[in-house]
């Protein structure tokens, strides 16, 4: 439908523009054609495997020398370690350190999936709600279950704002409860939405490149968007991780 409208608008000079901004997100079997079952090896499998390999290459192979004076690769691995460790410690508190490998896993997966998705012709796994919803739900369930395990019923103080005047507290409790359950929704849609929006916009600009007069503008716009997307790829991974830490802090210290 987008195609038709655009083609109708520019049909005279462009000879029919073709926009398929969402085609890059299609899940396809990697070998042959056919139905996609839950076990089918698809492009999702390929790009997730590449993300795992990239994590392995950076975090294991680059640090295999255990050098006191690090190489470039080892410095990057150490920087990632220090970055996430400091985030967990500063935002969630010292007693959240046991969750550090868990948070690190989320960060490394998202950052590599985002950056691999920026390669031309690649498939961006983090642009799918299926992926981000699982990630966000994992965080949500961890926080909720751990919060109740550690604090018991005291965890419900999160919703009962004791610093507010008494008549306001039930209203605030409802608002807090809603905001608590909206967390996984916004957490997942933020990541997938940002990544998907950027990639789709690049594809739309690429569609305009079919018109010879506009193509230089289009290429400049693609370059600019690509730069922005590199930034977004990192910032969204950072934001996802830091929000995980913020939620973990709620589980560990539910008092306001």
């Amino acid at each position: 439908m987008a195609t038709e409208t655009a083609a109708a608008d520019h049909g005279a000079e462009g000879g029919g523009l073709v926009f398929h901004p969402m085609d890059q997100f299609i899940v396809k079997p990697l070998f042959g054609e056919g139905e996609v079952h839950w076990y089918t090896i698809t492009n999702v499998t390929l790009w997730m495997a590449l993300a795992v390999l990239a994590v392995f290459a950076l975090m294991v192979m680059m640090t295999s020398r255990r050098a006191t004076i690090p190489t470039k690769g080892q410095s990057i691995a150490e920087m990632a370690y220090g970055f996430v460790y400091k985030m967990v410690e500063d935002v969630a508190g010292k007693d959240a350190v046991p969750f550090f490998p868990y948070v690190m896993t989320l960060f490394m997966f998202i950052v590599f999936a985002n950056f691999l998705g920026l390669l031309p012709m690649s498939f961006t796994t983090t642009s799918h709600f299926a992926v981000t919803v699982v990630l966000a739900l994992a965080v949500f369930l961890t926080v909720t279950i751990y919060g109740f395990m550690k604090n018991g019923a005291h965890f419900l103080n999160l919703f009962w704002v004791s610093s507010a005047p008494l008549p306001l507290r039930p209203i605030l409790a409802v608002i807090e409860l809603i905001s608590y359950f909206v967390r996984p929704v916004s957490h997942s849609i933020r990541l997938a939405g940002n990544v998907m929006a950027g990639h789709a916009v690049i594809k739309v600009f690429a569609g305009f490149a079919a018109i010879a007069i506009i193509s230089p503008v289009s290429i400049v716009a693609i370059t600019a968007m690509y730069g922005l997307e590199v930034l977004v790829a990192f910032i969204q991974a950072y934001v996802f991780t830091i929000l995980t830490c913020v939620y973990l802090k709620d589980a560990l210290h539910p008092g306001h």
Binding site: S186, I189, R190, G193, N194, A197, I235, Y238, V239, I242, L243, V246
Partner: peptide, 13 residues
């Protein structure tokens, strides 16, 4: 960044 993320989330919605 947390503030930006919250503000931006509504735009993403």
């Amino acid at each position: 960044f947390i503030g930006i993320a919250f503000a931006e989330a509504l735009g993403i919605f």
